[in-house]
Amino acid sequence: MEQVTAVQTEAITAINAARSTDDLRVVELEFLGKSGKLSGLMKGIGALPNDQKPLFGAAVNQAKSQVEALLNQRIQDLKGGELNRQFETERIDITLPGRAPRYGREHVLQLTTNKIKRTLGSMGFVYQESPELEHFRYNFDALNYPPDHPAMDEQDTFYVEDDLVLRTQCTALQGRVFETQKPPLRVFTVGRTFRNEAVDRTHNHTFHQVDCFMIDRGISMAHLKGTLGEFARAMFGPEVNVRFRPDFFPFVEPGVDYAISTPKLFNGKWVELGGAGLIHPNILERYGIDTREFSGFAFGLGVERIPMMAYGIDDLRHFFDNDFRFLSQFA
């Protein structure tokens, strides 16, 4: 029995002397392994008298479980410390720059166009495209421009041939649609338009336009105002109000300039966005649409206007410059 106590004491001393979990693994092997000192005591059990055998066995097992418990306790204690030391050596500076895998950034005009397409698309307007290089008749005649209108001058419009111009407005899509499709119609487009203008902060010879129109029975200025209201709120926030001011465009009657205001942007002032109105009855008649049955509205605006107003961009030229210092601010 003394023998058991002596080995147990020896084991406890070894455990207490261990300085790492690795030391403890050695101790574990030395005392508790299959041929360890404590397990080895059992080999001597055969030499004992029969009546002492159970007592001795119980004493060894008790010693073993006590040593085991102490050992496990020590392992836990040391492991905590060791992990902490490991964590210290693995410490990183989380303020070092992130390393991003490549992520394609959309152009700010594309982000705006996506928003326009989502908004008008969800209101049932079908997106259609039409040529940038457009026939004179779609760009002007079909839109009720009187012959000799100043907008037709070479000073204002890029001509390629007498009958081919770079479209000055995306509204040129209207005639193409009316030739092939019957009302009711809800259509919109987004695309490039061209004007023979000098380039400065607020003018460019090329810019983008969204043009939207619909024809149905009983379409009114109220429907135009409602649709524009929804559109403007989707672009600029829920508090936007829409104002109509009479204005003249050959392709609408009545024609208006529409402005928006919001308490948050533009100091509550009215800011003009574009032209709108009811589609001119001359246009509907030209395409055989009965103006007693059908009426329609149309509105258009510069796509660049939207991010310029929403983000306070002060130079129109940025949109075609492809300077990443500009583009990376939005996506």
């Binding site: 397409k117 698309g121 049932g124 307007f125 009711p184 149905d216 109220a222 429907h223 829409v242 009657e253």
Partner: peptide, 26 residues
Amino acid sequence: EEIGRVHGYEKIPEALPIGSTPIGGP
């Protein structure tokens, strides 16, 4: 248009078009 602009476009309410719509978008 003459009648409307004198009466005042600010009096036009907002309304959304009714009627069936096609699947919108591209």
